[in-house]
Simulated scan of single mutants.
Amino acid sequence: MKGNYKIAIIFLDEIHHIYHFITTAIELSKTNEVHILTHTGDTRFLSEALAELNGDKVIVEKLPTAPFRAFTDKLKGRKLPRKGFWIKKHQEYILDNFDAILFTDYFHHYFLKARKHRPIKFIYVEHGTAGRAYSYQKDVLDFDLHLLSGESEYRSLKKMNLLNTNFKITGYCKLDAVRDLNTKAVFSNHKTTVLYNPHFSPPFSSWHFLGLEILEFFSNSEKYNLIFAPHINLFNKVGGDDISVIPKIYFKSPNIHIDLGSEKSVNMAYVKEADIYLGDVSSQVFEFITTPRPCVFLNTDNVEYKNDINYRFWKCGDVINTIGELDDALRTSSQKFQEKYKAIQEAITEENYYREEGSTASQRSAVAIIEYLDKNL
């Protein structure tokens, strides 16, 4: 294995992408020149995460969007530059100066069109565990190398004819990144803590159907704590919900903690603290069940889910349709978990995340990338 390549990682997204590439970047930086190419806005969390994980060799390179685009982004309240304009401004520099680009989402099309004869390689890694149909798009075939988290993703892609010519099952790097993080618990009482983690997309998210009723349920509860930590894009994405829709009384409830997008909402702090997971179609539940625990799912749109791979996570707990079923579902969740769901969760985790004694997912990912570049450059 040779190494000594110049590798770019594009980071133009919300902070929930960081833990999916950062430890691979650090491993690669031991024998290669690694640049995280990003915007000129607030990237403090990226820098702090690199410092926390001893990533001092990784170069963070801030590239500005065009002045006019920056002005219009500011007018429209965008925290992040629009990817297309940023890419068009910098694509020639990137394509001419790097051996490979690592992507965590499907924003590679401008690069793909402009690459032409250049030998630069495109590498793809998911920014989460493959779950809904979003993970299984034909765009994945555009990449030269695809790193997979486990056997389940491999089987699904193969069945759908979406398996790249070059792929490697390496594991789930986020688990490496958050393994040693120490975070203070939200609650110090002895109540059962529930994590409510709705998705951001209206057709799938329970928030748009039952969200406020769920907050009201817990505000009246003497038995449960609630951590309301939705997908970061629910309130932070342009066009997403406004925080004003949440009555202020819930922010003051002693047994409710609301986090709409801080670092703790993406570093598995709440996942580790909670006793029960309450959600809909967010793949965060797959992270939750790496330590098996009770789950309850909200099917607010009455989806026929039992034979649909996009709802595989609903095998991990009871599925309910209305707020009226919530109390009973929570009350019986621990017993049902022991009787039925624990074994299912353990099997799903085994399928989701490849593990290997003597190495981490990040180390295996770095090796796979270097070996691929050795062979193809």
Score class of each variant (00 low, 15 high):
L210G: 02
N189W: 06
G279V: 02
N164S: 13
Q91A: 15
V178N: 07
T24F: 04
H90G: 03
S206R: 01
F143W: 04
T40H: 06
D308T: 10
S265Q: 01
K30N: 07
F11R: 08
Q284P: 01
H208F: 15
L95F: 04
T38W: 03
Y311T: 04
H190Y: 11
F235S: 02
G240Q: 02
T43W: 03
H108F: 08
K336V: 10
E346M: 09
I258K: 00
I243E: 15
L181E: 10
I246C: 00
C295Y: 01
D176V: 09
A66C: 08
K237V: 07
V34N: 02
Q91E: 14
K315R: 14
S135A: 15
Y354K: 09
Y372N: 08
K138V: 14
F209M: 13
H39L: 04
K6V: 09
H109S: 12
R118W: 07
R118E: 06
T322L: 08
V60L: 09
A185Q: 13
L145E: 00
Y341W: 09
H39K: 08
S47R: 14
N376C: 11
R118M: 09
K116D: 12
V281W: 04
K83E: 09
K272F: 03
G279K: 06
G77A: 05
G131Y: 09
Y106G: 04
R179A: 15
S205N: 06
E339R: 10
K272R: 15
E371F: 08
V178M: 08
H199M: 07
F143E: 03
K88N: 13
I59W: 04
L212N: 06
L50R: 03
Q363V: 12
Y353C: 13
G84Y: 11
A25E: 02
K116V: 12
V319S: 02
S334R: 14
F103Y: 10
T300W: 07
K174M: 09
T300F: 09
G324M: 05
L46E: 02
N299I: 07
Y110F: 14
H108I: 07
